[in-house]
Design a protein around this nucleic acid. Structure first.
Lengths: 196, 196
DNA sequence: AAAGATAGTAGCGACTCGATACCATCTATG
DNA sequence: CATAGATGGTATCGAGTCGCTACTATCTTT
């Protein structure tokens, strides 16, 4: 492949720039695609996607802001638009008066199912070999992990890979942080409190 | 790692969505970082970065638009802002009256050198092992290639990996498409006419 | 009970972005 | 060699993003 044509020394010198370039292009294509596919703004699509993969501790405006690297003010506006357009609804937290929980409406769920990730990405991923697929995902996760560590951000990992995750046998799970029991389906979602 | 904890079947089912999520987060972190680092808009940084890695056949507004997946109208505005702020200047093409060539000013070059790719990415990349670095880059390129093919976009590959690239010995190179001679330094830049 | 942290919103200004419309120049086709 | 179409670029408009500052409400700590 391309990389083999260039000397190892050259690779080392430019790889951060190369990776940045590749990411820029990847992001650009996906952003444009998401917009066309759904008729929504890229950020709006990302918010809907996040709400489809986060657990009940992470379905709040601040979590969205942390996940997407935006300020809560910005996210608040985007959520207003999405709420008014009927993709999302809000309900107050019963235990904490400051907190609002976000939920996808039927319309929101349908949009996520139909256009996120953009079909062109599904197609591109499908065209890779099985081993390339998992290698790619692993590369992405590893880079993301390094980036989050350097940036001391939250990891938003999958619940059942968390330090707080407790398996109590017979298909019963519990979160050691909140002490609450967890359903099996919940344990596959991402959590803002995730501890690696 | 994470992927090994999950059954192969599960991976196959969700990988496109997982990859989309990872890309979303990666993009978000880098966008935010680029903004902070340079004081510019993320897109503006991407434009400056592109102009620092493209060859003389690709330093035009349409090329920028194609690379970033934006319309030429949008790019035209962004370029106006960057030009007024002194990061870029424009000069007409001597052979084609429609075409404008873009160049980074000294100020533009300094900005690119100082903040792109964002230091946090350089750091993250550096924290990976050598083999992880090239594996990551290869994964990105492969996915990008699949994406571009599915989207029939331009590849923007590196000049000396192009079908049109001709080596005439004694360090002399030529582009078979334009018939023009190429300097060694030029052959390391990306080109909008790149043919894989 | 007071001070501070946290969750969320409101308004402002700069900028992005696609869409449409438009002009200038180059290139094919007859 | 004229003219139709393709291509490169700009201008204008409206919806939306986005950080910023300022603000309220609620929870937590001390």
């Amino acid at each position: 492949m391309l990389v083999n044509l260039i000397s190892t020394r050259y690779i080392l010198t430019v790889s951060a720039k190369d990776i940045y370039g590749a990411l820029t292009q990847l992001g650009a294509v996906l952003r444009a695609e998401a917009r066309i596919e759904s008729g929504l703004q890229p950020v709006q699509v990302q918010v809907l996607n996040y709400l489809s993969i986060c657990n009940r501790y992470s379905d709040t405006p601040v979590s969205v802001a942390d996940y997407l690297g935006l300020t809560k003010g910005t996210v608040s506006q985007t959520l207003r638009v999405l709420t008014e357009a009927g993709f999302v609804d809000k309900r107050p937290d019963p235990h904490d008066g400051r907190v609002v929980h976000l939920r996808l409406t039927a319309k929101g769920k349908a949009t996520v199912a139909g256009s996120v990730p953009p079909p062109v990405l599904r197609q591109a991923v499908a065209s890779l070999s099985e081993s390339d697929q998992s290698r790619t995902l692993e590369s992405f996760r590893r880079l993301l992990g390094a980036l989050q560590q350097a940036n001391d951000g939250l990891s938003f990992g999958i619940c059942h890979t968390c330090q707080h995750f407790l398996s109590e046998g017979r298909g019963r799970f519990r979160c050691g942080l909140t002490e609450e029991p967890l359903k099996a389906a919940e344990s596959k979602l991402i959590c803002r409190e995730h501890l690696t």
